[in-house]
Computed example of a mutant assay.
Amino acid sequence: MTAPAGAAHDAPVQPRVILATHNQGKLVELERILARRVPGFAPGMLVSAAGLELPDVVEDQVTFAGNALLKARAAHAATGLIAVADDSGLAVDVLNGCPGIFSARWSGRHGDDEANNDLLLAQLGDIAPEHRGARFVCAAALVAPDGQEIVEHGEMTGRLLTSRRGTGGFGYDPLFVPDGESRTSAELSAAEKDAISHRGTAFRALAAHIGALLG
């Protein structure tokens, strides 16, 4: 069978944007949002720090925005690409906003979701339902080749359960019920979560800037 004219000469899509993360869930989330929001966006334009085998950056800033910018600057410096990074976490009312920037390593082991959830459940063991308010917070940063630096923010408020529910998402999603919902974030579909999540809000705001940079 003869290949369509020009098909053999189609060049592979080159990465244009790097997401400074080793978290596959975040990569998939941003890719979904860009596909909906940026005209001409194609699979392959977005790559992760893990995909390019870049090392993790030590997150030594004391704010979500500071850590997001730190990671985006490092990814841009290493690749020259439009760089996006987020720092996000859970702020629990009765813990005065903790775990906050320490959410991913609350148990002492970075990225150990099970241990982080276990510790949080233990800390809130005696807290009544009406006092289990919390919010997910995200700062998403963009560093562009022309020197632009942009930070967008998003929040999702809700409450924490006394046990896990659901198998989707990651992090504290199985414990968190968003306001207006009876299901946890881990029980929502990807589209439902994107529509209301802290990260979805911040990434959608960045998508307009990314679209302008991609032309």
Rank of each mutant, 00 (worst) to 15 (best):
T201I: 14
E149P: 07
Q14G: 00
P43A: 12
P178W: 08
L70Q: 09
L46R: 01
P174D: 01
D93N: 04
A144M: 08
I33F: 06
T167S: 15
L206W: 06
I150S: 08
K71I: 02
V177R: 07
D179C: 13
A74Q: 12
Q148N: 11
V47R: 09
K26S: 10
L124M: 15
D146L: 06
K193F: 03
E187T: 08
L121Q: 04
S163D: 14
V17M: 04
A191Y: 04
D113E: 09
T162D: 14
H153Y: 15
G215P: 12
M156A: 15
H198M: 00
A207C: 02
D126S: 15
G125Q: 15
E149A: 11
L124G: 12
T167H: 14
F170Q: 00
A104L: 07
G100N: 00
D173Y: 09
L54D: 13
G215Q: 14
F41P: 10
D10P: 01
R135S: 10
A42C: 07
W106K: 01
G158F: 11
G80I: 08
R164L: 15
R135F: 12
P55L: 10
F64E: 07
E59D: 05
G125P: 00
A205F: 06
K26F: 04
G169H: 08
T162H: 13
E155R: 12
A141N: 03
G168T: 01
G211A: 09
P174F: 08
V84H: 08
L120A: 09
V151Q: 07
E152F: 01
G215A: 12
T21H: 08
V58P: 02
T167C: 11
G166N: 11
H198Y: 05
D194L: 05
I82R: 03
A72Q: 01
L213C: 05
A115L: 15
C98P: 00
G215R: 12
L81S: 06
D60R: 00
F203W: 11
A11G: 04
F176N: 08
R37Q: 14
T79R: 09
F64S: 05
V58K: 05
I18R: 04
G169F: 13
D146K: 07
D87H: 09
G166E: 01
V13T: 13
E149K: 06
H9E: 14
A77T: 12
A5P: 12
P145Q: 11
G6M: 03
